[in-house]
């Protein structure tokens, strides 16, 4: 599911040996996902950026403890989420999740009828609003699993809970969403 290119293991090994260029390559590859993950946890761009930056610095210092051959992504995301959670405590209100302007208006499908487009956009709004009203821990499982498309294992790493907890929270969240979204 992660689809990790073979050479990544090699890049991580080079970074472990202190090759700064190799590490920059990893930062380049994962900074987008790291920022989005931090953003969904902490809820504002400034703290998310700060958390992601701090996480990359800490991850570099901790590379010695990274077990060779393991997937790098969940390991990194765990550090990112940890930094984001630390900032979440001090951060103020979370920004509401928003849809891209175009997505809020039309379905993006080829020539949808006005009714379909309106319905789709409406359903999207309803679903997003339903996600927003979930309790924090359920919302985070949903955002990790479906919005960021993380695996169960990665979600567990990000939320710092066992996989079983991810499963049960996801199932409770989906039940709840089904009530409002149908």
């Amino acid at each position: 599911m992660v689809g990790r290119p073979l050479e990544e293991t090699e890049v991580v090994e080079r970074a472990k040996r202190g090759d700064a260029r190799a590490y920059e390559e990893l930062v380049q590859t994962y900074q987008g996902l790291a920022f989005r993950t931090a953003y969904l946890v902490v809820g504002n761009a400034a703290d998310a950026e700060d958390a992601a930056q701090e996480a990359f610095v800490k991850a570099y210092r901790a590379l010695g403890r990274f077990r060779s051959g393991e997937p790098f992504r969940p390991w990194l995301l765990k550090i990112v989420a940890n930094e984001a959670r630390n900032r979440r405590r001090s951060a103020g209100r979370r920004d509401a999740l928003a849809l891209r302007a175009a997505a809020a208006e039309s379905s993006g499908e080829a020539a949808p009828s006005p009714e379909t487009a309106a319905l789709d956009a409406e359903r999207r709004r309803v679903l997003l609003a339903a996600v927003e009203t979930l309790p924090d821990e359920q919302r985070l499982v949903v955002t990790c699993r479906y919005f960021l498309d993380l695996s169960e294992e990665e979600t567990a790493a990000v939320l710092d809970v066992p996989r079983g907890t991810v499963k049960s929270r996801a199932s409770r969240a989906l039940d709840r969403l089904r009530e409002t979204y149908g």
């Binding site: 930062v27 900074q31 930056q53 570099y60 849809l99 997505a103 679903l127 479906y146 498309d149």
Partner: peptide
């Protein structure tokens, strides 16, 4: 689940910063 994935693809995130120089 499919609808949630589709929704995720349509989310608006703030512009992603380039972290490489700072790191």
């Amino acid at each position: 689940e499919r609808d949630l994935r589709a929704l995720g693809a349509l989310l608006e995130y703030p512009p992603e910063p380039d972290l490489v120089p700072a790191v």
